[in-house]
C-alpha cells in the first residue's frame, strides 16, 4: 500500500473569543484509501500520543448524510471534488507531498467554537421560523387522499436532500444562506400539503435569515457548485417566486 506524506496547515482557535492562527503539521503514513476525516483522526491519534493538543473537528455518520463534517479545504468547502462531503472525500484525490490548508467555515452567522468546529445553530433558527407543515400528530388524513404529481414530488425530494452542513454559506462570497432556505421552502412549496401556509413560511424564514446575519444572494452559483447534495440554484428562483407571491 502506498504511503503519502502531507503538510497540513490547520486553523487552530481556542474558543470563540480567542484569536486563532494556522499551525502546520507534517503527517507521514497517510493511505490514499483513508477518507479526509480518517486522515485527521489519524493525525489526532499521533498528536495525543505525543502530548500535543488534537485538532477539534466535527464528523459523525461518515456517509455524507448527517451534515456534521465540513471544512474549507484548499479553497473549497468540503474539498475539491464535487458532490462529496468531507467525510466521503477520499485521500486518493490528494498528491503525495501536497500542502493542504484547512480552515473552518467563515461567516458571521457561523462563529467558530473551536478550531474547525463552528456554531451552525442559525440554521435551526431559520427552520424554527417556518420550516415545517403545521399538522399535529393524529390530524393527518389517509396518505393517498391527496394525490401528488410525481414530477412535483421528485422535485420536492431533490430539494429535501439538504443535509444542513452549511457549505453553501461557506462557499458564497456573501455568506448567504439562500440555497439552504430555498431548499426547505421549495420542498414544501412543491407539495400540496405545504401550500396552506406557504406565504407565512417564506416570509418568516426570510426574515429570520436576515436576522441571523447572512448575506444576500448575488446569484454567483458558488453554493450550487459546492453543495455536496447538488441542490439546484433553481430552488432559489422558486424561493424568490414564492416570496413575491407572499407579498
Amino acid at each position: 500500500m502506498q504511503n503519502m506524506k502531507l503538510k497540513l496547515k490547520i486553523w487552530k482557535q481556542r474558543d470563540a473569543s480567542s484569536r486563532g492562527r494556522f499551525v502546520t503539521y507534517d503527517l507521514d503514513g497517510v493511505s490514499p484509501e483513508m477518507s479526509f476525516v480518517e486522515m485527521l483522526a489519524y493525525l489526532n491519534e499521533k498528536l495525543v500520543l505525543k502530548g500535543d493538543e488534537p485538532v477539534t473537528f466535527e464528523h459523525d455518520c461518515h456517509e455524507g448524510i448527517c451534515g456534521s463534517c465540513g471544512m474549507y479545504i484548499n479553497g473549497y468547502p468540503h474539498g475539491p471534488v464535487k458532490g462529496l462531503t468531507t467525510c466521503l472525500l477520499s485521500m486518493r484525490y490528494f498528491k503525495d507531498g501536497e500542502t493542504i490548508v484547512i480552515e473552518p467555515w467563515r461567516a458571521k452567522s457561523f462563529p467558530v467554537i473551536k478550531d474547525l468546529m463552528v456554531d451552525r445553530s442559525a440554521f435551526d433558527k431559520i427552520q424554527q421560523a417556518g420550516g415545517f407543515i403545521s399538522v399535529a400528530v393524529g390530524a393527518a388524513p389517509e396518505a393517498n387522499t391527496i394525490p401528488v404529481r410525481k414530477h412535483s414530488s421528485d422535485l420536492a425530494f431533490d430539494a429535501s436532500v439538504c443535509i444542513g452542513c452549511g457549505a453553501c454559506v461557506a462557499a458564497c462570497k456573501n455568506a448567504s444562506a439562500m440555497l439552504f432556505v430555498s431548499a426547505k421552502v421549495s420542498q414544501y412549496a412543491l407539495l400540496p400539503q405545504g401550500r396552506p401556509e406557504a406565504k407565512e413560511r417564506v416570509r418568516d424564514m426570510i426574515a429570520e435569515m436576515d436576522k441571523q446575519g447572512f448575506g444576500s444572494c448575488s446569484n454567483t452559483g458558488a453554493c450550487e457548485a459546492q453543495c455536496p447534495k447538488q441542490i439546484k440554484l433553481f430552488n432559489i428562483a422558486r424561493l424568490n417566486r414564492e416570496y413575491i407571491k407572499a407579498l
Binding site: K108, N174, G221
Partner: peptide
C-alpha cells in the same frame, strides 16, 4: 446597501482564495 450587508456577513475571511466555480463576472458586480 446589500454590498455592505454582504461584507459584514463574513468579518473574518479565508486565507486561501475561494476557488468555488461561479457564474462568470458575478463576483465583480
Amino acid at each position: 446597501l446589500l454590498q455592505v450587508q454582504n461584507w459584514m456577513s463574513r468579518p473574518v475571511g479565508y486565507s486561501v482564495r475561494n476557488k468555488s466555480e461561479t457564474s462568470a463576472f458575478s463576483r465583480f458586480m
